[in-house]
Amino acid sequence: MFRQILLLFSLLFIVTISRAQTATADEVYDKYLDFNLARLQGEVEKATDLAEQLMKDTLKLKPHVRVNFYNSAAKLYEDGSQSVKAIELYERVVAAQPQYYVAHRALGYLYLKYIPDADKPLDIPSTNPDYIKAVKKSLPQLEKAQACDADDNTLTLIKTLYKNIGDVKGLTSLNERLKGLSKNCIDILSDE
């Protein structure tokens, strides 16, 4: 009998502790607001801390708020030279909001970050598989960004990348693709 009572109290204690550790949706949203405030006030360390805490509870945020959080956290990580974390979050943003070209631009450049001189014209097309893989990952992102917000530097980079991997077909059909991609562009994410 003593064992059963002890077991019952143990279970109640464990349930009470786990409920105390589970944040409510309101608490998570309040933490999200604190994260935004810290980020906007330039408190990078505090914002990064709050971002890490929020990551485990993002499903308690409304979908649009969650996407906005991912985007803000990605930018925070990108600025803090944590490209791997930034890429993961920008990919979530693009998956949820495929027309949000700002995240596409960030991804396009981040995919090329670890490829030395990725943006430099080559005399002959590259045969380096890592280079080609990075370029092929980067190009659709850069094209969406270019289609929605034309930029001479981005356009030059896109053309250089196509030439560097020897993709003449991709280069010649670029203008047509850009026209198609220019529809329904989103430049600002909403919390609503």
Rank of each mutant, 00 (worst) to 15 (best):
14 I>L: 15
28 V>P: 05
45 E>R: 07
113 K>V: 06
172 T>L: 06
159 K>S: 15
109 Y>D: 09
122 L>I: 03
133 K>R: 13
144 K>C: 04
22 T>Q: 14
49 D>C: 00
67 V>G: 10
94 V>Q: 07
81 S>H: 06
101 Y>L: 02
2 F>G: 01
112 L>Y: 10
17 I>L: 10
70 Y>G: 00
101 Y>S: 02
109 Y>W: 15
177 R>Y: 11
14 I>W: 12
41 Q>M: 07
40 L>A: 15
116 P>I: 11
141 Q>Y: 08
47 A>P: 00
38 A>R: 02
164 N>S: 08
165 I>Y: 15
159 K>C: 13
106 A>C: 09
117 D>W: 04
101 Y>G: 05
155 L>S: 10
53 Q>P: 00
179 K>P: 00
97 Q>Y: 01
158 I>L: 03
46 K>T: 15
26 D>R: 03
179 K>W: 14
85 K>F: 09
80 G>R: 01
100 Y>D: 01
150 A>L: 07
128 N>T: 05
51 A>C: 03
9 F>D: 01
163 K>H: 11
6 L>P: 01
128 N>I: 10
21 Q>V: 05
147 A>H: 14
32 Y>V: 04
172 T>Q: 12
94 V>I: 11
168 V>D: 02
156 T>F: 04
176 E>Y: 13
17 I>R: 02
137 K>A: 13
94 V>C: 07
26 D>E: 13
38 A>H: 03
11 L>V: 11
127 T>N: 10
129 P>L: 05
44 V>F: 09
79 D>G: 06
20 A>Q: 11
103 A>G: 07
77 Y>E: 05
127 T>C: 02
61 L>H: 12
41 Q>E: 08
77 Y>W: 03
153 N>V: 09
119 D>Q: 00
171 L>G: 04
173 S>K: 13
77 Y>I: 05
135 V>K: 10
66 R>W: 13
142 L>N: 02
65 V>T: 15
192 E>Q: 02
62 K>L: 13
112 L>F: 12
188 I>F: 12
140 P>E: 08
118 A>C: 14
32 Y>M: 07
183 K>T: 13
21 Q>M: 08
28 V>S: 14
148 C>Q: 12
76 L>V: 09
142 L>F: 13
151 D>G: 05
28 V>G: 06
148 C>G: 12
70 Y>V: 02
79 D>R: 05
182 S>R: 02
155 L>F: 11
185 C>Y: 07
50 L>Q: 05
167 D>V: 03
162 Y>T: 00
149 D>C: 00
8 L>P: 01
123 D>M: 03
13 F>Y: 10
91 E>W: 02
145 A>V: 05
101 Y>W: 14
25 A>R: 05
82 Q>W: 03
173 S>C: 04
192 E>Y: 00
23 A>M: 04
46 K>Y: 15
145 A>D: 11
146 Q>V: 10
138 S>Y: 13
40 L>Q: 12
121 P>T: 06
131 Y>D: 06
55 M>W: 04
107 L>V: 04
186 I>N: 07
103 A>F: 07
75 K>C: 11
123 D>H: 08
25 A>L: 01
169 K>P: 03
36 N>D: 10
